[in-house]
Design a protein around this nucleic acid. Structure first.
Lengths: 126, 126
DNA sequence: CTTGACCTTGTCATCGGCGTCAAGCTTTAC
DNA sequence: GTAAAGCTTGACGCCGATGACAAGGTCAAG
C-alpha cells in the first residue's frame, strides 16, 4: 500500500509518517515511480507507535518497541529494552505526580500568603 | 541601578530581563547613554515574577501580579485578576495530576498486557 | 486532453523562555 | 592608554511533533 492508505489505516497524517521515516522508525520500499510502498507489518508498527504516544511516550521511547516488533516478537513490549522504557516511563510519571503535588501545595501556600482569606475552599472546589 | 545589578539582585540573567521588557512585564528608564535604569520596585517585580515561575506559572500568568504590584498593592496576588489566575492554576494542576494518574494506569496496563509477569506488584496495580 | 487525487522533496512556522553569539558602544580601573 | 567589564540591538538556536505551503511528478477516469 502507499502512504495515504497507511495513514488512513493507522490514523495518522502522511506528514507524520514521513517524519517517522526521517527519524528512522519506519522504512519504505520505493516503487518505480518513487512512491513509498508499505505492507501489513508497517500498519502494526505505526499502530504501536501511536498507542505509545497516546499515553505520553516520545518517538524515541517508541524505538525499542519498533525494533522488538521487527525482530519478530508478537508484542513490541516484550523485549528487555522495551521493558526498561516502560519502567523508566512509570518512574518518570511517578516523579511528575510528586512534583505536581508539591507544586500544588506551593501555589496554595503562596495564594494563602498573598491573599489571606481568598482560599476558603478545599482542593478541587475552585 | 543598571541591568546587571538588577539581574544579580533578582537572580536572573540580563537576557531574561530584556525578554521580560520585550513582553511588556517590566519597563526601564533610559539614562543619557542609552543604558536601562531600574529602581527598587523593579527588584520587587522581577522577584515576584520568578517566584511565580518557580511554581510553574508562565510569564503571561505573571502579568496580573505585576500590574497589581504597580497599582500600589503590597502583594501582587491580592488583586481580583491575580486571584483568578491562582484559581485557574490550581484547577490546571489538579487536572494535570488527574491526567497523570490516568496515564499511569494506562501505561501499567499496557505494560502488563505486553509483558505478563514483568510488572511484579511494583505499586499495587491490578 | 484535462481534471483531480495522490505522490515527491524541501522549507518555514509553531510554542516558551530564554542561551549564545555578533558587532559595536561606554564606562571603569589600573 | 588600554584593557576589561558592562551596556546596546539584532538574530539564530533549541526542543518535539508535526501543520501548512510550495512547486512539481504520476496516474486513473471521463
Amino acid at each position: 500500500m502507499r502512504i495515504g492508505e497507511l495513514a488512513r489505516r493507522a490514523g495518522v497524517s502522511t506528514r507524520a509518517l514521513r517524519y517517522y521515516e526521517q527519524r528512522g522508525l519506519i522504512r519504505a520500499r520505493r516503487s518505480a515511480n518513487g512512491y513509498r510502498e508499505y505492507d501489513e507489518s508497517d500498519v502494526r508498527i505505526v499502530t504501536e507507535i501511536r498507542e505509545l504516544m497516546s499515553v505520553g511516550f516520545t518517538l524515541e521511547d517508541a524505538r525499542p518497541f519498533v525494533d522488538c516488533l521487527r525482530s519478530g516478537h508478537a508484542s513490541g513490549g516484550s523485549c528487555p529494552e522495551s521493558v526498561a522504557v516502560y519502567r523508566r516511563k512509570l518512574a518518570e510519571i511517578d516523579r511528575q505526580i510528586r512534583d505536581l503535588l508539591a507544586r500544588r501545595s506551593e501555589v496554595a501556600a503562596q495564594f494563602a500568603d498573598a491573599c489571606p482569606g481568598c482560599l476558603l475552599t478545599r482542593r478541587g472546589e475552585t
